[in-house]
Amino acid sequence: MKDNKINITIIDKIKRAITQLVFISYSVTVLFFMAILLITPFRSPRDVARGIITIPNSFTFINFINIWKGGFSLGFKNSMLFSISTCIVTLIVGGLAGYAFSFLKFRLSRALYTFVFSCMFISIMLISIPLFMQYKNLGLINSFLGVLIIYVGIRLPFTVFIFKNFFDEFPKSIIEAAKIDGINDIGILTRIVIPLSKPVTITVILFNFVAVWTDFLIGLLFLQKNENVIVMLRVISIFQGGISRTAPLSIGYAGLFLVTMPAIILYILGKKYYVEGLTLGSIK
C-alpha cells in the first residue's frame, strides 16, 4: 500500500516534469524568436554580419535612421492612411449593418447575414486576380481610393460578424423602453446603442487596423509605384533585393521591427478585446 503510494507520487512528479518541459521548450522558442526580432535591429551592420545568433557587441540606432531615410517613412505614412481610413469606413458601414441584422426584423435578415458572414472565409488570392484584371482595365491600380475599397470590402464581413454578435447580446429591454418613449431608429442608434458599444468598437478597430497594417498581398498586386508602397512590401523588398553592404541584414530587421511593434503592442495592450473578438459568436 505504502509502496503503491510512493510509486504514484513518483509517476506524478515525472508527469509534471514532462509537462513543464513541453511548456518550457515552446516558450524558449518564442523568447528566442522575440530576442532576435528585438535585439538585431539595434546592432551595428558589422556586428550582425558576424551572425544573428552571436553575443551583441554594439548598440546603435543607425539601422532605423537608414531605413527611415530609405523610403520607409513613405510606406509608414501610406499604411497609416490605409489602416485608419479602413477602420473609419468599416466601423460606420459594418456597424450599421450589424445593427440592422441584430435589431431590425426583416425577412431577408438571416439570408443576407449568412451571405456577408460567409465572405469572411473566401481566399483573398482568389478575389484578387479578377479584381486586378478589372482595376488594370479601369486604370485603378495604384489608386488610393481603389485599394481602400478592396481593404474595406475584405474587412467588412468580419466587422459585421463582430457587431451582430455583440448586438445580439445587447440588453433589448432598453431598446424597447426607448421605442415606447417614441425615439426612432436613428435616435436609438445614436443615443443608446453607440454610447454602449465602446468595447466592440475597440475590438473592431484593433483587428482591422492590424490586418491592413500588416497586409502584404493586396499591396503586392495593387500598389506598384514607389510612392504608393506600404510598410510590409517595403520590408520584404529589402530582403528580396539581396542582402548587401548597402542594405545589410540589420536594416531588414529594423524594418521587421518597425512593422511588428505597432501590431504586437496593440494586441498585447488590448488582449482582452482580442480574446473577445475571437470568442464573440464562436463561444456562447
Binding site: A97, L112, V116, C119, S128, I129, P130, L156
Partner: peptide
C-alpha cells in the same frame, strides 16, 4: 452599403 462592398469585392470576382 455593406452589400455593395461585399458584392463588389467578393461576388463580382467569383
Amino acid at each position: 452599403p455593406v452589400l455593395t462592398f461585399t458584392s463588389f469585392v467578393y461576388v463580382n470576382p467569383i
